[in-house]
Design a protein around this nucleic acid. Structure first.
Lengths: 269, 269
DNA sequence: TCAAAAGTGTTTCATTTACACCCATGA
DNA sequence: TCATGGGTGTAAATGAAACACTTTTGA
């Protein structure tokens, strides 16, 4: 029951965690009253997915989240949590809202969780305090992500966005806001890199946009528009093994893509 | 040297604060390691202004800010701080970013501030801990706002955006990000209500847009575009006393304006 | 040979841009 | 009467939307 810092790949440190230990020592380790929750989006079988954890002793699913170490940047903490849950690094990860109303805390709920873990906790226990939570959303390559449950969860799985159940605490609201932000972002930022595999068809990209926007787009107009951004390169390769005319594969032109990320696409003013 | 809760207008409570008291008792009163900073924008003489405080014992100007009570919503805390600095309520006020890198803290700087106030503080003093700060921006009617210094400041004044000096800590960065957010927002939200007086000329509104965007717009095209939003009503009144053809006055059609705030204007997708 | 999705252009309509003259007022 | 900014419209260019037929493949 110790806190172990495990060095992985020789590249970055990950805090391997143990529930009882965390709950006992969290007060020393973490920035107080502050947590991070991540809406991690992936795309598979032409469906937008979100990674959820099944939290022990609650029967509820939740967004993966965690706490920030006292000497850790917020960004770094979010990246660490993302890596812990998916194994991925250097992906699109952005904060979108700080949830900070009093009503989001449910001390009774958390007290019950402690009880079920057989942990004694006074009223001043750090875990029972009020928490602000910072929402992050991440766009990751479904195929490369390896979901791993954490110390508070008994399961970790991708859920289709349309089938997400009632989540723990206010996590449905957090997820909704993440989606809303993503949708808004679509109007002034390119998207798709990190969500799609390296090579993909135009239809797959269109499908991604349609899923996020929640409506159908015209195929020819979509092609024209995307091409006008100048962030794609059509390869000579085609995807075959399909029972129809084989489509071209595309890849993102990374320098152009990153420039578009920085500069935005085409504001209304 | 007591903490006094002053009831104003019989409508809302304001925490009137005293520096020494705050520094002594902040640990009991406030959510730990968390602050709020506000970029309060106003518009006057066709210039975008921002409200700054001159912080005692530092010689620096800073964004008005403060702390959140333990049993207070984040939104409420921001509104309280805004009201304390400007006397205004029910204005546009929105969070835009949580600043949370380690580098933004400057313990030596804060320690010096305590020293100059002759306050004894151990290393664990709440004021010397690491703080996350949530940035809010507000759009207020310059004419109605009454700047009031707070307990940590010796002055409180509107600054022209182009003349803002080097601010305390990372406040320049916070202000820049507020402006960037405001600019982005302009592409999908109406703006001007709260920043302009009740009645205003089209040129004043255009000037506001130009100031925020940092570039000139065509007068006729601006008129057409703004009109197309359907959020303005032209009055029969004109502004007179000017040495040229007297311009019409406009006012916002509040229901339409608020609907546009909720629904957005015209997304690119 | 059939089903299924891919590739491809044009026309129409809407939006955006550029641009210039006369007007009403106070000084 | 002059200087100043206000009010107004049109033409051209650009961008968005609607729309259908032929092609290639695996089954």
């Amino acid at each position: 029951m110790r806190l172990v810092f495990v060095s992985q790949n020789g590249s970055s440190n990950e805090v391997e965690q143990d529930l009882e230990d965390i709950l006992q020592r969290g007060g020393e380790l973490y920035h107080p009253g502050f947590s991070i929750d991540c809406a991690i989006f992936g795309f598979h079988a032409n469906q937008l997915k979100v990674l959820l954890l099944k939290v022990k002793n609650t029967g509820r699913w939740a967004l993966p989240g965690g706490f920030m170490l006292k000497n850790e940047d917020v960004e770094t903490a979010a990246a660490r949590l993302l890596k812990a849950r998916t194994g991925l690094e250097h992906v699109f990860l952005r904060q979108f809202y700080l949830f900070g109303d009093l009503a989001r805390n449910d001390e009774a709920f958390n007290r019950q969780r402690l009880r079920k873990e057989n942990i004694q906790a006074s009223a001043e226990h750090w875990f029972l305090q009020r928490f602000l939570t910072l929402g992050y959303y991440a766009l990751v390559d479904f195929a490369q992500a390896v979901p791993r449950p954490d110390y508070i969860s008994e399961d970790c799985a991708w859920w289709d966005l349309h089938e997400v159940p009632a989540l723990m605490l206010d996590h449905n609201r957090i997820l909704d806001k993440a989606l809303e932000t993503l949708r808004l972002q679509l109007t002034y930022q390119p998207i798709g890199y990190n969500l799609l595999p390296e090579k993909f068809t135009m239809t797959e990209l269109q499908c991604l946009y349609e899923t996020i926007l929640g409506r159908k787009l015209d195929r020819r107009n979509f092609l024209r528009r995307i091409q006008s951004y100048g962030i794609l390169r059509r390869l000579d390769e085609r995807r075959d093994g399909v029972a129809h005319k084989p489509p071209y594969l595309y890849r993102f032109d990374l320098p152009a893509y990153e420039q578009a990320l920085r500069q935005g696409l085409n504001g209304a003013w």
